[in-house]
C-alpha cells in the first residue's frame, strides 16, 4: 500500500491550509460566502489536486484527465483555490470571486473556469452527472476516474440515491465519491432537520464500498482513497467525518456558518490563524528529511 511519508503528509496538510487561506481571501474580497462547507473540504481538495488526480493544468480539457464533480457546488471557492495552486490559473484571479463578469462564480461552471469539469449548484445533480461521466468513460475504455464530492445535507436529495443505485448497478468502479459529513446544513444540524442515519451502511446496502475516515486527516483520507481506487466491480465512497468551518475559530464547529458575511477584521483574524499554522507546518517540514 502506498502510504504517505511524514514529509508528504505535512506538505499536504500545509497545502490544505493554503486552500483555506486563499478561499478565505477570496470570500473576504466579495464580503460573504459559503465559509462553513468550503473550510470543511480543504484537506480533501488538497489531497486530490496535490496527490491523487491525473491532470495537466496547461491542458484542462485533456481527455485522459481525471474528472472532479463538486456536487456541493456552492463550495466552489475551495475548488478554485485548489485549482489555482495546481496551476490552472493565476492565484490573483481568486480575488475576482463573484465580481461582475468573473470567471469564478460562487457555484461551479465549466464554461467559465479552467479545470472545472462540469457545472453544479442544484444539489443532487452532480451525483447523476458523475455517474453518467463514469459510464461514458467506461464505455470508451478510458482509464480516467471520476471523483464526486457530496455534502451531507445534499444527501436529503432523492436524486443522490437514484444515482447511487444506478452507479452500483452499472458497476462503476471508476467512480469514487466523498461525502463531507460536517453535520450542518443551512437551517441547522442535519440530525435535527432530516436525520441521515448511518450513511456508511446506507451506501453499503446500496452496493457501494464505503469507508469512514477523518476528513481533516490527510493520511486517513489518502489511505481510504487508495483502498477504494483498488476496488473493482463497484463504486466506492469515503464518508468523511468533518467539522463545518474547520480551521478558523470564528466559524469552526459553530452553528449557522453555512453562508456568512466576512468583515475585513474577521478576514484578518482568519488570515492570522491560518498563516500561523502554515508557518508551524513549514517549520516541521524543515525539521525532517523527505
Amino acid at each position: 500500500m502506498n502510504i504517505l511519508s511524514q514529509h508528504r503528509s505535512l506538505e499536504l496538510h500545509r497545502a490544505a491550509e493554503f486552500i483555506r487561506l486563499h478561499s478565505m481571501e477570496a470570500i473576504g474580497s466579495c464580503g460573504a460566502g459559503h465559509v462553513g462547507g468550503v473550510l470543511s473540504i480543504a484537506e480533501l481538495t488538497a489531497l486530490l489536486y496535490q496527490e491523487v488526480l491525473r491532470y495537466d493544468p496547461k491542458y484542462p480539457e485533456d481527455p485522459a484527465r481525471d474528472r472532479v464533480v463538486l456536487s456541493k457546488g456552492h463550495c466552489g471557492p475551495a475548488l478554485y483555490a485548489a485549482l489555482a495552486l495546481a496551476g490552472f490559473f493565476p492565484m490573483e484571479e481568486l480575488l475576482t470571486l463573484n465580481q461582475n463578469g468573473s470567471s469564478l462564480p460562487s457555484h461551479c461552471n465549466m464554461h467559465k473556469t479552467p479545470g472545472i469539469d462540469i457545472g453544479t449548484g442544484s444539489l443532487g445533480q452532480g451525483a447523476s452527472l458523475a455517474a453518467g461521466m463514469a459510464l461514458g468513460l467506461k464505455k470508451r475504455s478510458s482509464a480516467s476516474r471520476v471523483f464526486l464530492i457530496l455534502g451531507d445535507g445534499e444527501c436529503n436529495e432523492g436524486q443522490v440515491w437514484e444515482a447511487v443505485l444506478f452507479a452500483a448497478h452499472q458497476q462503476l468502479d471508476n467512480l469514487i465519491a466523498y461525502v463531507d459529513v460536517n453535520k450542518q446544513q443551512l437551517d441547522g444540524y442535519t440530525e435535527d432537520i432530516c436525520s441521515l442515519g448511518d450513511l456508511r451502511s446506507k451506501f453499503e446496502s446500496f452496493g457501494w464500498r464505503a469507508i469512514q475516515a477523518d476528513g481533516h486527516n490527510i493520511d486517513e483520507l489518502h489511505n481510504a482513497t487508495q483502498e477504494i481506487l483498488r476496488e473493482t466491480g463497484r463504486p466506492g465512497i469515503v464518508i468523511m467525518d468533518t467539522v463545518k468551518g474547520k480551521g478558523w475559530s470564528g466559524v469552526d464547529g459553530k452553528p449557522g456558518v453555512h453562508h456568512v458575511p466576512i468583515s475585513s477584521e474577521q478576514l484578518e483574524e482568519a488570515r492570522k490563524e491560518i498563516t500561523h499554522r502554515i508557518e508551524s507546518l513549514t517549520a516541521q517540514l524543515e525539521g525532517i528529511h523527505d
Binding site: D117, I118, G124, Q125, A127, S128, L129, A130, A131, G132, M133, A134, L135, G136, L137, R140, S142, G158, Q159, E162, A163, F166
Partner: peptide, 13 residues
C-alpha cells in the same frame, strides 16, 4: 431526473 443527469454526464464524455 437521474436519467437526464446520466444523459448529461454521458454527453460531457
Amino acid at each position: 431526473a437521474n436519467m437526464v443527469g446520466i444523459a448529461s454526464g454521458l454527453s460531457s464524455e
